[in-house]
Design a protein around this nucleic acid. Structure first.
Lengths: 218, 218
DNA sequence: CCAAAAATTTAACACCGTTCACTTTTCAAA
DNA sequence: TTTGAAAAGTGAACGGTGTTAAATTTTTGG
């Protein structure tokens, strides 16, 4: 019998999961505060009282480990957006809330958020024909899809200009929110907005979201 | 006599400048293609046929060297914006051109641009009272100032809503353009926009700029 | 209890930025 | 032209990094 699918895993599996979790949570702790710079395999090994090489039995590389942190956080962002998306708020405000929520959640863990966008993705020369558009599967694809549907909704409801192409608009919105998140978390002298009272930050995020939505309006 | 200010520098000075320039241009070459990851002091030393330690006679650290690349590129961006700013184009179009130019220039050297915004600036606890707002001196301060004045102009000309606060609007614009530049250069699957014909990229940048300006309009 | 398998460690490799003591080169004054 | 100091450049090392292979310990099932 194959017991690998039972709810109660074997003790060996449980132990393995515990160690894996310990690695991830140590990594999470360090990464949240010091980012990729402060996170070294050796330091991680120290914190969980294992040897550095042990970590490689749980993760293929440091990048794989960090990727898991990034993906987890990005999924959290998506979740929060999805909540707003299906909230009962009236439309134009709901759209603004989605944008603002994206930025606010990104600001919760600046290092995570920035790292998720830090790699310059290679051009891979010839189009990979074998996997045509798995955009819908990836987290980033989902983010784009959410926004695209949000725009469509606004068009159908008559709030946005009818000639808008939802996909283009979604890209523009996403990029703009991404920029705001990066600026607010990375540029401490983003003029007159360093670590002022949180309500000011919130107000500015709302302001930015409003400006973007206005740009789509009829 | 102090000869250090004569136009013709001493031979020693000229040699020193040549070597310094060689280091910088090798660094520029590598950095443009491979970014900070591919740039090591040892590799630089190899390329210019010096020993690694020699480089430290010209730059205090690798960071100082890279900073010089980043600053130089950011100044190029500012220059291009300034050109647009003082062009003869009619107003709302001129504003769009400024935004689009910022993004287009950033895309010329993605690694440079990204690196210029890559550091999370520390909170430094207590405000540094000794240097109250040197925003106007720094390159980023200048970028902000340009945009702020651009918005003011739009308000006075009656194109933008009168109640807009120029500084807030400028921050929003800047952040949005920053986001677009980062997205377009870093996310190769920024959906349906990887390395399509350049005219498509240009068109999208214009689209984005237009959307932002619309958000400010009365 | 014992052998096979899994988990873990030790030690090394090849890098990295940086520093320091040392040698070589340059250059102006005697 | 010789000399001596300053400048330029080097070699070797230090402590750090990610990663891997072999050896070792621990766990597990028959």
């Amino acid at each position: 019998m194959d017991t690998s699918h039972t709810l109660e895993a074997s003790p060996a599996e449980r132990r393995r999961r515990r160690v894996r979790e310990a690695i991830l949570s140590a990594a999470e702790r360090v990464f949240a505060v010091e980012g990729e710079a402060g996170l070294s395999i050796r330091r991680l090994a120290d914190e969980i009282d294992y040897s550095p090489a042990a970590i490689y039995k749980y993760f293929g590389s440091k990048n794989e480990l960090v990727d898991e942190l990034k993906e987890a956080f990005f999924e959290r962002i998506l979740g929060k957006i999805d909540d707003q998306r299906s909230s009962t708020e009236a439309y134009p405000a709901r759209a603004r809330s989605c944008l603002a929520t994206y930025v606010r959640t990104a600001l919760e863990k600046p290092h995570h958020y920035a790292a998720a966008f830090s790699s310059i993705e290679a051009d891979t020369e010839e189009h990979n024909e074998t996997e045509p558009a798995d955009h819908h599967a990836s987290n980033k694809g989902r983010a784009f899809q959410y926004l695209s549907e949000l725009v469509k909704e606004g068009i159908y409801a008559g709030h946005f200009r009818a000639e808008l192409k939802p996909d283009e608009a979604a890209k523009a919105l996403w990029a703009s929110c991404h920029g705001l998140a990066m600026m607010m978390s990375h540029i401490s002298d983003f003029p007159a907005m360093p670590h002022e009272p949180p309500q000011d930050r919130d107000a500015f995020i709302d302001y930015h979201s409003d400006l973007l939505i206005r740009g789509l309006e009829a």
